[in-house]
Simulated assay, not measured.
Amino acid sequence: MILNFSFKLIAAKGKLVCYFSLYKTYRVVSTAPVDVLWQKLINLADASWNPLIARTNVPRGLIPKPGLIYQVVTRFTPFPIQFFVENVRPGELLSIRVLAIPGMEQKITYQVESTLCGSYISYSVTLRGWLSPFIWWLIRPYSARVAAELAQAAERVSV
């Protein structure tokens, strides 16, 4: 687990401005093959393994590509939030930007890699903006479980 946190208070033009940034990475080892992990991850229609997401509006079979915008209903809010797929490297990386609330910017990155010890899953969260401390306080317990839940879901499929 890697945590990088920065907080800046800047006085400019008679105003007090607050900049908050948080970067956190969770890493888990899985016995499931990378291909199975990747298939579970890019199936955006089935996010049942993700403790933060209740449902999405993505049709089954749609493969994420850069520029795809889709809606997600989280377990915290009854209204949909837009997600934007920024980067996809097949079998390796999926990067998503959350377009939710003014005053907060969130980026989520999933990486999968195969090693001799098994498959590694990295789940990184980057938060910026003045609302970030509150959002982080709200999602932190669930974010800690995302990579582990993905690994368990892929292991159930590969058995």
Rank of each mutant, 00 (worst) to 15 (best):
V125Y: 05
P141K: 13
A147K: 03
V125I: 13
L150Q: 02
W136R: 01
F134I: 15
G103T: 08
L138N: 01
C117H: 14
P141S: 10
S124E: 13
S122M: 12
P141F: 11
S119G: 12
I108D: 08
M104T: 12
I121T: 10
S124N: 10
L127H: 02
M104S: 11
E149L: 04
A100R: 11
K107W: 03
A144W: 02
L131I: 09
L150K: 06
G103M: 11
S143C: 01
T109E: 08
F134Q: 02
S119R: 02
W136S: 09
I101S: 11
S132W: 10
R128S: 11
P102N: 06
R145K: 15
L131P: 04
V112K: 01
L150F: 07
W130D: 01
W130C: 07
G129M: 06
T109K: 05
Y123R: 00
R140H: 12
G118M: 04
I121E: 06
Y142M: 09
S119H: 07
C117Y: 15
K107G: 04
P102H: 03
R140F: 05
E149K: 12
S114E: 15
W136V: 09
M104I: 15
L138I: 12
C117F: 14
E149G: 04
W136C: 03
I108V: 11
I135V: 15
I135Y: 07
G103F: 05
A148W: 10
R128N: 11
Y142I: 01
E113Q: 14
G118W: 01
E113K: 15
L150T: 05
I101P: 08
A147R: 02
Y120M: 13
V146A: 00
L138E: 03
Y123V: 00
